[in-house]
Simulated scan of single mutants.
Amino acid sequence: MNKQHIIALIKKDILLETRQQYTFYGILLYVASTIFVVYLSMGQPEDKVWNALFWVIQLFICINAVAKSFLAESRGRMLYFYSIAGAGDFIIAKLIFNALLMLLMSLLSLAVFTVLLGNPLANATAFIGISMLGGISLSLVFTFLAAIAAKAEQQAALMAIMGFPIIIPQLLLLIKISSIGFASVVQGGLWQMIALMTGLDAMVIILAYILFPFLWKD
């Protein structure tokens, strides 16, 4: 693993994103319009509905912001990266960049949520931390899935098939963990669930680092 290669690849993605800004403004428009439609139809929902809506919207934000990262890379560009960097460096750089992007999107969507749908949080600090952890977790999973799907002909279908059995349990776990933000008392087993989520993130990173070189050679 070469840190200089990883940093250079991350800077490349950041530079492309700041120049084009299609993803950022597109996702920002999606977040604002979706939440505004929810506000018009439901007003300010109760705590459980608010929490569920937040994570469902986070899921679609992640699909739009993160899952397209590999699909946007042309074959010629991938050949160029193959000549200057290793597979491990490339996938780690993608994981870090998408985690940072999803971290920003999570905070922005949470801000829009509280403005339009009210702020029912009793423990806002805990919910912000969990939303950041959840955004990173979703980005890691979809980056890994996008790396696999980018090598297939039916990318969208493959991502849906692989992602459904993985992302549903993760979403349910995130909804369960984030319920602490609506209660003033810490529920039992919270830290065990956070440790489980962190362990799943670590497993995704390890699997991506081990398996991506086989795709990289294709």
Rank of each mutant, 00 (worst) to 15 (best):
L140A: 06
I96C: 06
M102D: 10
S139M: 10
L116M: 14
V141R: 00
S137H: 07
S106F: 01
I96W: 03
L116D: 03
N123T: 06
L117V: 03
F144I: 03
G135W: 06
L101F: 03
L104K: 03
V115I: 15
V112K: 04
L101A: 09
I136R: 02
N123W: 10
S109W: 00
F127A: 11
L116H: 03
L104T: 07
L108K: 00
F142H: 15
N119V: 11
S106V: 01
M102Y: 01
F113C: 07
L116E: 04
L104I: 11
V112Y: 11
L121R: 07
N119S: 13
L145H: 09
L108I: 15
S106E: 09
F144N: 05
L108G: 00
V112S: 07
M102E: 13
L104D: 00
N123L: 04
L133W: 05
I96A: 04
L145Q: 08
V141I: 15
L117W: 04
L95H: 05
P120F: 08
L110F: 15
L104Q: 03
L133H: 08
T125F: 11
F113Y: 12
G134S: 11
L145P: 12
L104P: 00
I130P: 04
T125L: 13
N123P: 01
G129N: 06
A111N: 05
I130V: 15
G118W: 05
M105C: 10
G129D: 07
L107I: 14
I136Y: 02
G118T: 05
S131D: 08
F144M: 13
L117I: 06
L100G: 07
V112E: 13
V141H: 02
M102L: 07
I128H: 02
M132R: 00
G134N: 07
G118F: 10
L101I: 03
T143P: 10
G118C: 09
G129M: 12
F127Y: 15
A126Y: 04
I96T: 03
N98C: 13
F97N: 04
F127Q: 04
G129L: 14
L107A: 13
L116Q: 03
N119M: 13
T114R: 14
N123M: 09
T125E: 14
V115T: 12
A122R: 11
L133D: 06
L110I: 04
F144T: 08
I136T: 13
M132V: 15
L121H: 08
M105L: 12
F97V: 00
G134V: 13
L100C: 10
I130T: 11
A99Q: 01
F97G: 00
G134R: 06
G135I: 06
F113Q: 10
L121P: 03
M102A: 12
S139Q: 11
A99L: 00
L133S: 07
A124M: 11
T125H: 05
N123R: 10
